[in-house]
């Protein structure tokens, strides 16, 4: 028992560092999830809109960001954005990259939900005189919710794990960077530190999954 406590000393001795890092990762995830969901829904709206130019923008967006590695997208944000005059802390470039990348997946999840709503619903909405945006917002998307929560949940959980790559690319101060600080710089043993880092991620993803289950049941009832 005492051995186990000793084994995790690299974590327990640095629990403050872990806590701060956890909060930074949580912050990245909250901004990332909000941004990805909003942008993903917007891109999905473009893809199902009656305007061909918007449809093309939407499908080009998905093609680019779904097919490029996240690391490349992040590097483009970190080095490309300053070149076109956009300067910000790397923290924000990391979030922008994560949102661009994840929005492509969120878009496809939302679009599959939109396609699950019968075409008659949108036709009736248009026949009543609702504009495209009104019919999407008040008739189609609310009904798409019940099929869209599980796949969207998977997209967000994948994004939470991808936030480690944002850390690896250089945000600093997040959960993944703790590994570098403690192991590479201070020479502490790898495995207990990694276990501590992993526990931090699980502390976000597992409650996240439970929350999704609750949400899924709630939208399933509301029909």
């Amino acid at each position: 028992m005492l051995g186990l406590i000793d084994y995790f000393e690299p974590v327990t001795d640095n629990i403050g560092l872990f806590a701060d890092a956890f909060l930074v990762t949580l912050e990245i995830c909250l901004y990332g999830a909000t941004g990805s969901l909003l942008l993903g829904t917007l891109i999905a709206a473009c893809r199902v809109s009656p305007l061909p130019p918007l449809q093309r923008v939407g499908s080009a967006w998905v093609t680019v960001f779904r097919n490029c590695p996240l690391t490349i997208v992040l590097f483009f944000c970190a080095f490309g954005l300053p070149e076109i005059g956009i300067n910000a802390p790397f923290f924000w470039f990391g979030i922008i990259g994560l949102v661009l990348y994840t929005s492509a997946f969120a878009c496809e999840a939302v679009r599959s939900g939109i396609n699950s709503v019968s075409a008659g619903q949108a036709e009736a909405a248009r026949a009543v005189g609702l504009t495209f945006i009104q019919s999407l917002g008040t008739v189609v998307l609310p009904q798409a919710m019940r099929t869209v929560v599980p796949p969207l949940g998977s997209v967000i959980i994948a994004m939470i794990k991808n936030s480690a790559i944002v850390g690896a690319v250089g945000v600093g101060g997040d959960l993944f960077s703790t590994y570098g600080t403690l192991v590479s710089a201070r020479g502490l043993p790898i495995i207990p530190v990694l276990l501590g880092v992993a526990a931090g991620y699980l502390l976000i993803t597992i409650p996240g999954g439970i929350l999704l289950g609750v949400l899924e049941r709630r939208v399933a009832v509301a029909r």
């Binding site: 305007l51 019968s118 009736a124 026949a127 609310p142 029909r223």
Partner: peptide, 25 residues
């Protein structure tokens, strides 16, 4: 053509479908 003007015109034209298409939610 598609757009606000069309939505305005549709508002003046009532339509009843074979499958009812009431908003399910």
């Amino acid at each position: 053509a598609e757009g606000r003007a069309l939505a305005k015109l549709r508002a003046d034209v009532g339509m009843v479908f074979q499958q009812f298409n009431l908003f399910a939610h």
